[in-house]
Design a protein around this nucleic acid. Sequence first.
DNA 1: GCAATAGTGTCTGTAAGACAGTATAGT
DNA 2: ACTATACTGTCTTACAGACACTATTGC
Lengths: 229, 229
Amino acid sequence: MEIADTPGVIVTVDTVLLTLCDGTLHVALLKREHAPFEGVLALPGGYVHVAEDASTWDAAARVLRDKAGIESPYLEQLATFSGAGRDPRGWSVSVAYCALVPQMLLRGGHGGVKLLPVEGLPVLPFDHKSIVAAAVARVRAKSQYSSLPVYLCGDSFTLPQLQAVYEAVLGEPINKVSFRRKIEQLGMLEAIDGAQEQGRANRPAQLYRLRKEFNRRLSLLDRALNARD
Amino acid sequence: MEIADTPGVIVTVDTVLLTLCDGTLHVALLKREHAPFEGVLALPGGYVHVAEDASTWDAAARVLRDKAGIESPYLEQLATFSGAGRDPRGWSVSVAYCALVPQMLLRGGHGGVKLLPVEGLPVLPFDHKSIVAAAVARVRAKSQYSSLPVYLCGDSFTLPQLQAVYEAVLGEPINKVSFRRKIEQLGMLEAIDGAQEQGRANRPAQLYRLRKEFNRRLSLLDRALNARD
DNA sequence: GCAATAGTGTCTGTAAGACAGTATAGT
DNA sequence: ACTATACTGTCTTACAGACACTATTGC
């Protein structure tokens, strides 16, 4: 029997929780409670707990739940950051995860969560700035061909609202007709019968929701990677 | 000061080395030299060596060099596989990397390397079958919009050869004119002056090579993720 | 009726695929 | 000259963006 662990390697998870505030992408940061960098704003993260976590995905979900008070409907593995220099405690491996949540869902979260725009972040400890940059790049890339931004909306939304979300993520205006054609052909939305946005002095917009069979589809794919087999 | 490692977690790297044989993707496997699964074919992998490896990328490169005798020009992080159940030794984290090499480069490798078609693999230990599947899916996806398959060719190649490689990876024929237009607009190849394929009873094809500025571009991007900051 | 935004029909330009033609080697 | 494959010019078709038009609410 060989050694049952890898001495000298720190194994952690970090989560990049993104949401839309005022039309721009923001990332959730927390003040660190322990050394190193105690009191400094950083990504929510923590050690993998061998006894509790069935995988690093579960560890990331636990970190978000316990430290930020959030159950993210979307949680995808981003990449793994590693090396001798990234953590002053020693050689470390951090499996980074990316979460997308509607801003409303953050209302119920813990009070200590700070939201900062992803552009123009202050200096962050470890290599957290690189991790955020990788998450934003991934989300922008996926938004060009997938339904990923729907996770930034609530349960129901109008097409103009969804288009505004896409435009905020991608940082450029989208042609209305093309957008609606694209959404149509992706086929992952369904109109909610008789439900329309009310209360404004114009034609009301149809409300839509994600079809059940597409719900959490992307995160399920990621889960399969972490399953036993 | 906290603990300097994460007890009970095994930290390894696994490499999926892909190449083209007889027009289909093959993966390199090695007989395991130690328990568990001693003597069984598996992906080349090993523990992270804190003293030698500056990152998991370096660990993967070292594993390929030492165990398979190959310096891969392309080595990209794929995903991280983790959990209590995937390794009988205990809770483990494996950072998986994907390498692409031209078949010629494998001639110089160690003798123990077995190449098997990625379709119809036998049962593999750990979750190596999932890892291979993820690598193949990633390579196919990236091949649709990038120059990734050039790493499966040698230093110089003709456009018809490159097209055959794309078709083998994607598993479907490509329109010749569209392919040449696409390659042209990607602009990462340059004709080698006066060099043409010889020796066949037809018009000789122009030889091309990857432009220097595009060399290892994708793997450099991945390296940046693993750098100190 | 008017303002404002939702949603749709249609035109146009760009890019992908099909096809056929020309080019150049060996035999 | 003939064959085989490399390469290229051009036609057609599909799709993305632009624009204009209709639809429906509150005031």
